[in-house]
Design a protein around this nucleic acid. Structure first.
Lengths: 136, 136
DNA sequence: TTACGTTGTTTTTTATAAAGAACAATAAGT
DNA sequence: ACTTATTGTTCTTTATAAAAAACAACGTAA
């Protein structure tokens, strides 16, 4: 339930119910109800106000209760997003990526060294696979 | 605002306000208010009920209005997320991804023949690149 | 033309979310 | 020991979310 999430985050921050209620700008009585799931239908604005001082957001507070599955799995971190966005902007298609990914399956990139050679040159450090391209 | 999102999705599905209200189990009057942003503080349950028949979810409906920044920037295409998450779970590092990205860009691999050798063996058909793994 | 079905709106009512107490219980201080 | 703060809870009130209903505007059909 939604109450647990809030309580957990609140205690992690070391806030009392009263303190969080003040920071959020909601009544402590209402916050108490919510935490104990005696009131499980707060408004969006109340949720947003509570989430803010917890440095959280509505989705997280909702957890898996209401939201459909896609939002439950935790989000890929920011760095990844940037990298991928960049790649997509540069024209990489899903098909391209999948094809290459399938080549370099699972454990291949776990503990190995690498270089990337395309057409007998083009080096790539910071990776651990050698990809050697051969024309036909 | 939140109203636009709902209206847009609703019309995309070809639903009338009355129809969506029925499907969602909320009153059409209230739905009308929400769409026109005359009521911008619905409860979580109402939001969830409206989102369901639209095959959507609360976050999307919220858009960038209430949620903190991380949720504002448009979400990376779901399909990409799944693909990347999967690859990461299989052990792909950021460096690995960059290497693949560069390969994709070079476009060379597209029309060529391939084999995959890992540790001097491990073949991979149905592709056109030789990937040669080397331990360190 | 009159009537009927749908559309979305505005008015009215009622249910309940959320506030504002007042309260008991534990802790800290003098 | 008796205060004086905090804690979180429960009772009471009031503000408002949400329903129900009545309405106007448009189309369609008999």
């Amino acid at each position: 339930m939604i109450g647990e999430r809030i309580k957990s985050l609140r205690e992690k921050k070391g806030y009392s119910i009263t303190k969080l209620a003040d920071l959020a700008g909601v009544s402590k009585s209402y916050l108490s109800y919510i935490e104990r799931n005696m009131q499980n239908n707060p408004s969006l604005q109340v949720m947003a106000k509570i989430a803010a001082p917890l440095d959280s957001n509505i989705e997280y507070l909702l957890g898996k209760e209401i939201l459909p599955k896609r939002n439950q799995e935790e989000t890929l971190d920011e760095e990844w997003r940037a990298i991928i966005k960049n790649a997509v902007d540069e024209g990489m298609s899903k098909g391209d990526f999948q094809a290459l990914k399938d080549l370099v399956q699972s454990n291949m990139w776990k503990n190995s060294r690498v270089e990337t050679n395309v057409h007998a040159s083009q080096k790539k450090k910071s990776s651990n696979i050698i990809i050697l391209h051969i024309d036909n």
